[in-house]
């Protein structure tokens, strides 16, 4: 474990908690893409199948459990408890356009052609593009609530910090995982225009609006 990865995990945890609290306390999931949340729940499900077979540390197991519980709780709140506030008219990104190509790629490009490894690879590729429905929804509505933009900033920062962690691990341990690194770079690049808007607008107290 290194400080970059710890900060990355905490940023990821913060993002998940921010979103869950936003929906729970405002009793509304307006402006939030339910499809992205379903994809994140799928990412954690396919990545943490080794939760009970491959014990790394208490921290690792606890975080995996928290991510799984919070992501399913968010999906539940959005599609059941606060379904009336779910903006399905703007959350129209076709998930199959992501899941099918990512599934195919996971079969073609992986480290080991075994079920667990292919599912792990699928989760890495899927996580890289899972935010697209959310970014697409914001581009359709042309704006995002401030709390949602904080959520996205924390979520985007997590994988950016992981990239620093991978560089650090490469130079200190010689460890690197090209699949995770390439997917992590794609994932972070997708946030770039949002990062620009967040830093130039939200941090100046303005509403996050996209140029129509």
């Amino acid at each position: 474990m290194n400080i970059f990865r710890l900060l990355g995990d905490l940023s990821h945890l913060l993002a998940i908690i921010i979103l869950l609290l936003k929906i729970w306390r405002t009793r509304s999931c307006a402006g939030v893409s339910g499809k992205s949340q379903i994809l994140f729940a799928l990412v954690f499900t396919t990545r943490y199948l080794d939760l009970f077979t491959n014990f790394i540390s208490m921290y690792n197991s606890a975080m995996k459990l928290i991510y799984l519980v919070c992501s399913y709780a968010t999906v539940f709140l959005m599609y059941f408890k606060f379904k009336a506030t779910y903006d399905s008219n703007h959350d129209t990104f076709r998930m199959e356009f992501l899941v099918v190509p990512v599934g195919g790629l996971a079969f073609l490009v992986n480290h080991d052609f075994t079920p667990l490894e292919i599912l792990w690879t699928f989760s890495i590729y899927l996580e890289a593009v899972a935010i697209l429905p959310q970014l697409f929804m914001i581009s359709k509505t042309g704006e995002a609530e401030t709390i949602t933009s904080h959520y996205l900033f924390a979520l985007g920062s997590y994988r950016a910090l992981y990239i620093v962690n991978w560089v650090f691990r490469f130079y200190t341990e010689g460890f690197f995982d090209l699949i995770a690194i390439v997917a992590g770079c794609v994932q972070t690049i997708l946030y770039c225009d949002f990062f620009y808007l967040y830093i130039t607008k939200v941090l100046k107290g303005k509403q996050l609006t996209l140029p129509a």
Binding site: N54, N60, K64, D112, N165, D177, A180
Partner: peptide, 10 residues
């Protein structure tokens, strides 16, 4: 190369 299957990251 190191053992990839050392899945110690989240």
């Amino acid at each position: 190369t190191l053992d990839y299957n050392r899945k110690d990251e989240l």
